[in-house]
Nucleic acid binder design. Structure first.
Lengths: 116, 116
DNA sequence: CAGCTATATCGACAATTGTCAATCTATGGG
DNA sequence: CCCATAGATTGACAATTGTCGATATAGCTG
C-alpha cells in the first residue's frame, strides 16, 4: 500500500513498478493448484511412479498397498484424489480395479509449471 | 496381500504382477513432494507468476501484496516457502526486498513430474 | 442364496496449513 | 537520536489433510 493516507507523500523512490502485467488470475491459479496439490504428497508420487513403471495393462490396488506400507483405505483414498485430478484413470475388470496413467496428464501438469 | 495366510490358496488368477520395479523410494518422494507442495497453493502460483512477469531486476513485496488481496505477513510467509523450496531468490537492496525466479527451478520441478 | 475377496466409503483424530493481528528488526531521513 | 517505513517473525485459530479402523458395496464361487 504505497502512497496512501499519509499527510504528505515523500515518494522519492517508489520501490519498483506496479507491474501492470495480468499474471495469473485467481480462478486459473486455483485450478492449477488443485492439480498440483494432488502431486504434492510423497505417497501419491510413489503411487504414480509405480503405476507408470507398470505395464500398459494397469496396476491393481493390491500391488500398490504393500510397497507403500499403507493401509488399503488410505491407498484407495489417494487413488481417488489422483483420478479426480485427472492424473490416473480407473478401469474395473472383474473384482479388481486397474489404474493407469491418464495420457498426457503429467506433461500437462509440468507445462502448468513452466508456463507460469 | 495376495496368497497369504489362507489355509488354501486358489490363486487361479493373481490380479497382476507384483511389479518388481524399484519405482520412487520414500526419501526421494518426500523431497519431491516438498518442492511440489510449495507449488500447490493458488496464492503462491500467482506470486510466482507475477515475479516471472516482472523485469529481471526483481519484484518487491509491496507490489505483491496488493494484487493478491492478502496481508503483508501472509505474502511474506508464502515468499519464504518459495525461497526455502529453491524456487525464488531474495535480494535485499536498501529498505526493500526483491524477489526473482531461481534460474531453472521451474524447469527442474516440471522435470520431476514428467520423470516420475 | 451364503460366503469370500477386492475395493470403496465413512467417521474420527492428529498433524499440517493458510490467514491475520500484533510485534519485532533493520534501514533511511530529519 | 528519534521516528517512519519495508519486511520478517510470532502466536493464534479455523480449515484442510493424511491416516486408520470399521463398515459398506460389488463381483465371484460354491
Amino acid at each position: 500500500m504505497n502512497t496512501a493516507l499519509t499527510v504528505e507523500t515523500p515518494a522519492e523512490e517508489p520501490c519498483c513498478e506496479p507491474s501492470t502485467a495480468p499474471a495469473l488470475n485467481a480462478a486459473d491459479a486455483q485450478e492449477s493448484a488443485r492439480i498440483l496439490k494432488a502431486l504434492s504428497d510423497p505417497s501419491r508420487l510413489r503411487l504414480l511412479s509405480i503405476v507408470k513403471a507398470g505395464d500398459g495393462g494397469g496396476t491393481c490396488v493390491c500391488d500398490l498397498t504393500e510397497p507403500l506400507h499403507l493401509g488399503q483405505p488410505t491407498v484407495s483414498h489417494h487413488l481417488k484424489i489422483l483420478v479426480d485430478a485427472g492424473l490416473l484413470e480407473r478401469e474395473k475388470r472383474g473384482t479388481w480395479a486397474y489404474y493407469s496413467l491418464a495420457t498426457g496428464a503429467l506433461e500437462r501438469a509440468a507445462a502448468m509449471i513452466t508456463g507460469l
